[in-house]
Simulated scan of single mutants.
Amino acid sequence: MSSSTVRVILDTDIGTDVDDALALAVLLGSPEVDLLGCTTVYGDTLLRARLAKRLVRLASRSPAVIPGAAKTLTDRPAWWAGHEGRLFTDLDTEEVDSGDAVAYLVDRVSREPGQVDVVAVGPLTNIAHAITASPSFARDVRHLWIMGGRFDDPKPEHNLKCDPEAAAVVFGCGAPITVTGLEITTTVRLDGVDVSSIGGAGALGAVLKAEIEQWWRFWNKEWNCPHDPITVLTMLVPELFGFSPDGRVVVGADGSSTFEEGDGRTRITTSALTEPVAREIVRRIVAAAA
């Protein structure tokens, strides 16, 4: 394996916003990535895992896919859009991997300290459980790449709002973290031209196109912001972004987030080259689907 290979676990609430599926496809279409596994979080995590398994199988890949925490730390009700998995009539035939997602995260990271990156693009419940289950997790993970928060507005963002207690654990753990908030991810859009390119790239591309269009119908729009794929690219193509100096993120009880520069090992994404980012997302998804 090349020394430049990035060893990655994706922690995801795939199935609701289409951006999780697109982030998975970006990872699958990135030759420098060794996707070790996917863990799912929030709500019906078995359904989410089956959907992730279907997508990786369409890409002829076989990372571990393990359902994780369905409930948040304080058992807040999960928001469920209702369309999760509905484009398939046979998802119950997908066999996901056995085991506990938190144990998998802890074991895989501790097996190779400083060698495994975790990309977390849903509520942070699984990651918080891993931190509390193993004091070494925060030390052993190479880097946490998080989609969450908003750092130009006090309004809470979905991922942190769904489980603010978990977010507080994660941002307080001392691991090196890069977090990309809504003020950055909403500057990039995928439109009909992008979706046509994705849809023309094999069976995986056709499924992703249908998932995108389902999300568009849900919001009555003909575009979407690829929040989670942008987060993946902060790891893979950092030259397309600007980042703050290190500091710390403080999470409010409502899931609001503020960044304080200085003491800490967390940085926030501060800018993005929007057109190159969009093109890179599409390029890598097409590569996964071809």
Rank of each mutant, 00 (worst) to 15 (best):
V65R: 04
V141E: 03
L240C: 08
V195G: 05
G43A: 14
I184M: 08
G247K: 04
V41Y: 05
D19I: 00
A278S: 13
H158P: 00
W219P: 00
W145P: 00
L208E: 12
T231P: 04
G174L: 07
A175N: 08
A49D: 02
S98P: 07
R217E: 11
A168N: 03
T274C: 11
D20K: 07
G37V: 10
R189S: 15
N159I: 00
S244R: 03
F151R: 01
V277P: 05
R108N: 00
S60Q: 15
G264T: 04
F137L: 09
P226N: 08
V237A: 15
G264P: 10
L22S: 12
E157P: 08
A64Y: 11
A287I: 04
T89W: 01
L273Y: 00
A21W: 02
T16S: 14
A272Q: 03
D19V: 09
G247D: 13
S4G: 07
I281E: 04
P229E: 11
V193G: 11
R86N: 08
W80L: 13
G255Q: 03
W145A: 02
M147A: 14
L208S: 08
P229R: 01
E213D: 13
S98H: 12
E211I: 05
G247A: 12
S30W: 05
A103Q: 13
V207R: 09
L182K: 13
V8W: 05
S110I: 00
V96P: 04
R283E: 15
S134D: 14
P63D: 03
E84G: 09
L87M: 11
P135L: 10
L36D: 00
P245D: 15
I198K: 01
K53D: 06
G122Y: 01
L144Q: 02
A138R: 06
S244H: 11
A166Q: 02
Y104G: 02
A49K: 01
V188A: 02
V33I: 07
C162A: 15
I212K: 03
E211L: 15
R48H: 08
P238R: 10
K155H: 12
D263H: 11
E275N: 07
M235K: 14
G43V: 05
H83D: 06
R86C: 07
R284M: 09
N224F: 08
G252F: 04
L22N: 10
D90R: 01
R111K: 15
F151E: 03
L124M: 12
G199F: 04
A120L: 09
S244Y: 06
L46Y: 01
H129A: 09
V232Q: 06
S60F: 14
N220A: 13
D97E: 13
R189V: 13
D19A: 08
V141S: 09
G148V: 06
N159P: 00
S244M: 08
P245E: 15
D191A: 11
R150M: 07
S110A: 14
